[in-house]
Amino acid sequence: MGFLEVRDLKVHYPIRGGVLNRVQDHVKAVDGVNLSIESGKTYGLVGESGSGKTTIGKTIIGLEKATSGKILYEGEDVTNKARSRNKKFENYNKDIQMIFQDATSSMNPKKRIIDVMSEPMRNYFNYTPQETKKRVADLLEIVGMNAEAMYKYPHEFSGGQRQRIGVARAVASDPKLIIADEPTSALDLSVQAQVLNFMRRIQKEYDLSYLFISHDLGVVQHMSDDIAIMHRGRFVEQGSKEEIYKNPQHIYTKRLLSAIPDMDPTTRAAHKVERQRVEAEYDAQETDYYDPKGRVYDLQRYDEEHYVALKPEEPNASLQNENVNTGGGN
């Protein structure tokens, strides 16, 4: 069992409309997801735009409310308790941090870096101003920046530097898990390499875990131990990196992987033929992999470290209900 467990999490947003602005329907942004996070590991979360990745992250840190399901931290039920002032949940708040999709816009432009970075420390530690300064300097050093940077404002840095400051801030409260939402999508290759190297370095040093959200399958492969592929608010496949990349089972995973650009121009034609073959296969077999309403099936254990959302075996449809196989990954 992991120190953080997400069980059958659902986050449904109401859609309002009509003259009375009544709730007419729901967007099932997250619709039954399980995660088990262990120390020192990186969990990649991949899926197309709108599949619910950010919503999972925000719900774990308490920026969105879970509609149903449970989040357990060190065995304690903390569902919808993050951000709560109750001392009882302080550790949870401190131990789980998030780097947002766009670090730049999540930084107050009028605050100096030292203020940006010392905020989480003020909340959780009783440092003297001297200690705070020392800690900020140390953190900046970890992400490869000079201590003088603390007296500057966000706009005085390049995008990559700001993103590194974002990482440093997330580390400031000494967390156990950092939810990193597309932390390098807006960055150039070399700057991305720099940020990814830092993230791996501090992971080793502090035994950090990451929930690494990205639509870049190359980056996810580089960073992750385990990977979950998300589609329409649910996981279509979950498992070790090796299993997912080398032995994908769900048609959606296959299609996603076949679309990763190939860095070798000499095999371009063959790669395109293969990709279009998988696309055609996806179109032909879509109904076998989703229920009649287009919903992703529940995950089933496929192998030791590999779960796939396949159509339940039993031909007797009346036996299939929500409680059968509510997912794996535990």
Partner: peptide, 12 residues
């Protein structure tokens, strides 16, 4: 900023 699957379609 597009998904790889849509990216592939657009390049095709």
């Amino acid at each position: 900023a597009l998904d790889v699957t849509i990216q592939a379609q657009i390049l095709d």
